[in-house]
Design a protein around this nucleic acid. Structure first.
Length: 852
RNA sequence: GCCGCGGUGGUGGAAUGGUAGACACGAAGGCCUUAAGAGCCUUUGUUCCAAAAGAACGUGAGAGUUCGACUCUCUCUCGCGGCACCA
């Protein structure tokens, strides 16, 4: 019988769906395992082979876990709000509310054709009002706790498209990615979430979770915690003081100037003066976008204010400058310049001919004056020219001077972060409306008032004109009858908030909703959360490490604080996967014409082949280019297994060597799946198949079943079909005994879902006994030990021979040494030389070291 | 500039400090077949040698530790990803 994947796969997919084979059971006694993949954004392009790589690998992982007796939850849903959907809708000329369901339908069909063991009964969709009701509820909680606030924030504005842009839409040179025009920064009131209030906890709690070091490091860097000190400087002849943040106060005896950001509040007070030059500089600098500032390179510009700050340490008069290399958003917006030990300060000092004293001697011991070469901060060094700090190591000096400055009241230790508060509003149509009402009466009004919880969800109104408004406001502002409401507090005339949430909003908490997708009283039932949370393994793209992953941790921690979820960290373990590139090694893109469509691959080779190939193509966490030839290799492998399973099976015992290989394979595949090394797991099964093929006899049926069980997580359809064929053969004329786990599951399912209208309540007994409900095969350690071991014989580290030694003799070094010395090939190299040392590693290697 | 990851045959890659190149692709030769397809068998890191036997070389470059290094340490180099005038 020929291997016909399309027929087999359709048949089993239907069967699994009818029987609800992969539904997870709440409160089941088996240990739970919550396996999560990032739910997709259902784009118009359909499923990407990159999705398939991650999902089929996790599918194999989850299937094995089920076979090991875990109650596995492997859910799926749709992250369907956001700018890409809106842009796609504009491009197609169809309303997003129509386009999105179409895309979802297509994704769903494609997913199902892959035989992924998702629990479809828990499917969610972020654009469903019943879902985003709770996204809005979370926002209200943030507002209630004072963690959602409004502030003026610079936004990217495209003057041609008349719309605000996300940072992702602005190219490196400041151009809008779609129209190519230069964007501008302009200030606009936005909603922000105070993630910085959680910075320390987000950092500290990384120690309580199992993230790969790459991921953890990137989160640490993103949070960017820095300890330093704010130093107060008096301005000569003025009452105001300037506060500068620095992480290196040890070098403060080398400070020769102070620089303010153009946006610094003190600068504004200076502009009333007659200094035209200064005014012109500040105005010019403020107009520049951040991108333009960078585009100018590192050339320093600036203007002298005519004022001096006093360095209290040595009473040095430091001229006060304004320069746009200093950023208002970081630190205090004022920098004390230590040109001897900071590259930027050095450049600035050169430009304005300021002195560049040295206060640290680096490891080269150079004490000369710094004039030519750039001097950066050393990691190690000794202080000079610094009064009471002289001779101290820089880290000791830092502590000493911080204490000193604090004692004197000149400074205060402080901590800064790279991470900023999270801009949480968008001026776009296709998102969750922010549930706030603005009550601004001429007499004052109530301000920003939350929509009462009972009135949630605030449904997104259907708008014919959903395109950007052209004013920078959300298009919702044009829906006057929607905008116009009464204030929930005072009943006066008020206006709805017209901004919507970013596409991250719905994906912050979706994994909680899977636990109880239809609950209309709360996010999810508390008992269900207690049972399932935290997520045991969260698998996703590396590109989401700082945005989605960090931000959703923040949201979860907040929910924990308000008592809405049971623990402080959502994901116990996080791993990421590599990207799948086009066959040409470039990122898959329509413009390169190198996109591989999983549907085509399934059509040609079947889902099992696609799955096996995507796991075999290379290390799971590494970026890999697609290879059509590689797919064919995996197709050959499955065809070979199919053929051998039907032809090379015996009633006799499996030959010992083949049985040993099988047991080693079972062990290796099990370990490799656990450590996400899917490529070597597949390779070891190929190795086994090759031995099976070349073996004269073949596999006993019981052993064949074990091999099929091992392969089942990777190629579920084909193994299921073969399993059924074997079972049919076995039960012919016999009384069929249902596997206990299988029948138990079925009973639980039936009782759990009796009252609901779903396929499982119509479950009928059948002889069907799914391979995936069989226990994961157990290898027998007695087969892992080989009777003989090959000992490699080296002379001076070079391999000269290998000798076979009976296992029980491996401990006797003398005997092995004797045997090795008998070998012609070894003797040749030992002749006339004195053996100095004999190294023996049991069961592996013997190395003769001679005198040269 | 900073942080992170990586560099192994013609290609994708494998290798707890212990026979480098598993497995797969590609290529070459053969079997089967009227033919095609599919399948099966053999060979396949480089160099030396007519060939075999054998030997030398070989994991980006250079040094170090070690009886022994793709693996550990240091310096450099190239490539990829992230951040970036962050004080």
């Amino acid at each position: 019988m020929k291997y016909n994947p399309s027929e087999i796969e359709a048949k089993w997919q239907k069967k699994w769906e009818e029987e609800g084979s992969y539904w997870a059971l709440d409160f089941d006694k088996r240990p739970k395992f919550y396996l999560l993949i990032e739910f997709p954004y259902p784009s118009g392009a359909g499923l990407h082979v990159g999705h398939v790589r991650s999902w089929s690998a996790m599918d194999a992982y989850g299937r094995k876990k089920r076979m090991e007796g875990y109650n596995v939850l492997y859910p799926i849903g749709w992250d369907a709000f956001g700018l890409p959907a809106e842009n796609y809708a504009i491009k197609m000329g169809v309303h997003p509310s129509k386009i999105v369901p179409q895309n979802i339908a297509r994704f769903k069909k494609q997913c199902k054709s892959l035989g992924l063991s998702f629990d479809w009964s828990r499917e969610i969709n972020t654009t469903d009002p019943k879902y985003y009701k709770w996204t809005q509820w979370i926002f209200l909680k943030f507002f209630e706790k004072g963690l959602a606030y409004r502030a003026d924030v610079p936004v990217n504005w495209c003057p041609v498209c008349k719309t605000n842009l996300a940072d992702e839409e602005v190219l490196a040179d400041g151009a809008h990615e779609r129209c190519g025009q230069k964007t501008q920064k302009r200030m606009q009131k936005q909603w922000l979430l105070k993630i910085t209030a959680y910075a320390d906890r987000l950092l500290e709690d990384l120690e309580t979770v199992d993230y790969s070091s790459k991921i953890a490091t990137q989160q640490v860097n993103w949070i960017g915690r820095k300890e330093g000190i704010n130093i107060l400087y008096e301005i000569e002849g003025r009452s105001e003081k300037i506060v500068c943040f620095t992480t290196r106060p040890d070098t403060n005896f080398g400070a020769t100037f102070v620089v303010l950001a153009p946006e610094h509040p003190f600068v504004a007070s200076l502009l009333n003066s007659k200094l035209k030059k200064m005014k012109a500089y500040v105005e010019k600098a403020k107009k520049k976008s951040a991108i333009e500032r960078i585009a100018e390179g590192r050339k320093k510009t600036g203007v002298f204010t005519g004022l001096y700050c006093i360095n209290q340490l040595n009473n040095y008069k430091m001229p006060l400058f304004i320069s746009d290399f200093v950023l208002m958003e970081f630190g205090t917006g004022a920098v004390v310049g230590v040109p001897g030990h900071d590259k930027r300060d050095f450049e600035f000092a050169k430009k304005f001919n300021l002195p560049i004293p040295r206060v640290v001697v680096g490891k080269d011991g150079d004490t000369s004056e710094i004039t030519q070469k750039e001097q950066v901060q050393e990691e190690k060094g000794t202080m000079i020219n610094s009064d009471f700090l002289n001779g101290l190591d820089i880290s000791e000096a830092t502590k000493r001077i911080m204490d000193y400055l604090e004692e004197k009241g000149w400074g205060k230790r402080t901590v800064t972060y790279h991470m900023r508060d999270w801009v949480f509003s968008r001026q776009h149509y296709w998102g969750e409306p922010i549930p706030i009402i603005h009550c601004n009466q001429p007499t004052g009004g109530c301000g920003a008032v939350p929509v009462p919880e009972k009135k949630l969800p605030v449904e997104l109104p259907y708008l014919e004109k959903y395109q950007p408004s052209g004013t920078g406001e959300s298009p919702l502002a044009l829906a006057l009858d929607w905008v116009d409401v009464k204030c929930p507090k005072c009943g006066g005339r008020a206006r709805r908030e017209t901004d919507t949430m970013p596409n991250w909003a719905g994906s912050n908490w979706y994994y909680v909703r899977y636990l109880d997708p239809h609950n209309d009283k709360t996010l999810a039932d508390k008992k269900k959360m207690d049972y399932w949370l935290p997520v045991d393994l969260y698998q996703g793209g590396f590109e989401h490490t700082t945005l989605h992953l960090l931000y959703s941790r923040f949201v979860y921690k907040f929910l924990y604080d308000v008592g809405a979820v049971p623990n402080p960290e959502p994901y116990a373990k996080r791993r990421s996967h590599g990207i799948v590139l086009g066959p040409d090694g470039r990122k898959m893109s329509k413009s390169f014409d190198n996109v591989v469509n999983p549907e085509d691959v399934v059509g040609k080779f079947g889902a099992d082949t696609l799955r096996v190939y995507e796991m075999f193509m290379g290390p799971f966490d590494q970026t890999i280019a697609w290879s059509e030839e590689g797919v064919e290799g995996c197709f050959r492998f499955l065809k070979r297994v199919w053929r051998l399973s039907l032809t090379k099976v015996t009633q006799e015992k499996t030959p010992l060597s083949l049985l040993a290989k099988l047991n080693r394979t079972i062990k290796k595949v099990g370990q490799d799946i656990e450590s996400l090394k899917f490529n070597t797991a597949v390779a070891s099964m190929m190795e086994f198949t090759n031995e099976w093929q070349s073996n004269k006899k073949g596999l006993n049926k019981a052993d064949l079943k074990n091999f099929l069980l091992t392969l089942a997580p990777f190629a579920p359809h084909m193994t299921e079909e073969l399993w059924q064929q074997i079972r049919r053969f076995e039960v012919r004329g016999e009384k069929l005994e249902l596997d206990s786990l299988n029948s138990r599951n079925r009973d639980i399912r039936r009782s759990n879902f009796q009252d609901q209208d779903n396929p499982i309540s119509h479950f009928k007994d059948s002889v069907f006994e799914s391979i995936h409900l069989q226990p994961w095969p157990v290898y027998d350690p007695k087969f892992l030990q080989e009777e003989e071991a090959m000992i490699v014989i080296q002379v001076n580290g070079k391999v000269r021979d290998g000798i076979k030694i009976k296992s029980e003799k491996l401990k006797i070094k003398n005997e092995i040494e004797k045997m090795a010395k008998k070998s012609e090939r070894v003797r040749k190299y030992l002749e006339g030389k004195k053996v100095k040392q004999v190294v023996y590693v049991e069961g592996k290697i013997m190395n003769f070291v001679t005198e040269q």
